[in-house]
């Protein structure tokens, strides 16, 4: 039971982290109609920036803030130099061009930071376990990831649903040409949205960094997960992304920790321990396939045109 609560929280934490990544992706997708595979590279760059700046300033928070700023600027630069020329093109062109960007960023990182990974040490004031229920302890760091992600999710909700910028974002998602015709500077809006998405990806990357190592290619697997999430949630829908992210986080984490035992009850123990990792990795893809077959537009399709 203790293990279950802990894994439940781990799943929630992973899901919320995925939400940060998926939120940026779905914003860019929903508003610019742009498939950005390089979003995972921004996640990776965020983690590398954070590790570098944290070593440089000697403070986790200082490094994190600098990394957020740096990735925001990187995102804006990327949008300005390359991606804005791709708006209105075929999705396939986006896939290809941003696939090229992934190769570029991976090699850039190898060139600058070397092939070995970096580590971002946990700040000392977050290394202790917290008692969350009587007798149940949980890592303070993971707990703080949950809190930060929830705060960011709340911030996004307010930003998108309650502010003027959010209104423009929603208007842009439902009809790009129209808000342009109404005299809104959509170039600036798109650039800011892209920068925001980049900063969210960096936040996910730098928060995940102390748990895993910072390494080349770290953005790719998680990017695919983020895509699965926005497809399950319905492209362009922040709410859908949130629900799908938590769902995917829970299914993935719980599957990995409990499926081996579950399978052992029906299979021989060796067969179970070999099949379980494969099946648990497949679970979320299975979920996506089922969702798409039943609802080809995702669970919460953003209303269109």
């Amino acid at each position: 039971m203790l293990l279950f609560i802990e894994q439940l929280l781990n799943g929630l934490q992973f899901g919320l982290l995925l939400f940060l990544l998926a939120a940026g992706l779905t914003l860019v997708f929903g508003i610019m109609d742009m498939v950005n595979l390089a979003h995972g590279s921004l996640y990776m760059m965020g983690a590398y920036f954070a590790a570098t700046f944290a070593a440089w300033t000697g403070s986790f928070i200082g490094g994190a803030l600098l990394a957020l700023g740096a990735t925001f600027l990187l995102g804006i630069a990327l949008e300005f130099i390359a991606l804005r020329h791709l708006y209105g093109r075929d999705h396939l062109d986006h896939v290809l061009a941003t696939f090229g960007l992934i190769l570029f960023f991976n090699e850039l990182v190898r060139l600058v930071w070397g092939p070995g990974g970096l580590s971002l040490p946990l700040p000392a004031w977050l290394t202790f376990p917290v008692q969350i229920l009587p007798g149940v302890y949980y890592s303070a760091y993971r707990l703080s990831i949950i809190v930060v992600s929830l705060l960011v999710a709340g911030f996004l909700y307010v930003l998108v649903m309650r502010t003027r910028i959010g209104m423009l974002i929603r208007a842009g998602a439902s009809n790009r040409e129209m808000i342009g015709a109404l005299g809104i500077n959509i170039k600036l809006l798109f650039m800011l949205v892209f920068g925001l998405g980049a900063a969210l990806a960096a936040l996910a990357g730098l928060m995940q960094a102390p748990i895993l190592t910072v390494q080349i290619g770290m953005g790719e697997n998680i990017l695919i997960l983020a895509f699965v999430i926005i497809v399950i949630g319905g492209i362009g829908s922040i709410r859908g992304a949130f629900i799908a992210a938590v769902l995917v986080g829970l299914i993935d984490t719980l599957g990995r920790s409990f499926l081996p035992d579950l399978l052992r009850t029906i299979l021989s123990s060796t067969a179970a321990s070999t099949a379980a990792p494969a099946i648990s990795s497949m679970l979320i893809y299975l979920l996506m396939a089922v969702v798409l077959v039943v609802r080809p537009e995702g669970l919460f399709p953003a209303s269109r045109r």
Binding site: F227, T274, M282, Y285, M288, L292, P296
Partner: peptide
């Protein structure tokens, strides 16, 4: 059953499943 970018993503998902099946065949 799906179109456009959903088609891109669902074919990707199936390929990833095949990848994990192969990786799990001890």
């Amino acid at each position: 059953r799906t179109r456009g970018v959903y088609f891109i993503m669902i074919t990707l998902a199936f390929a990833q499943m095949a990848y994990y099946i192969a990786a799990g065949m001890a």
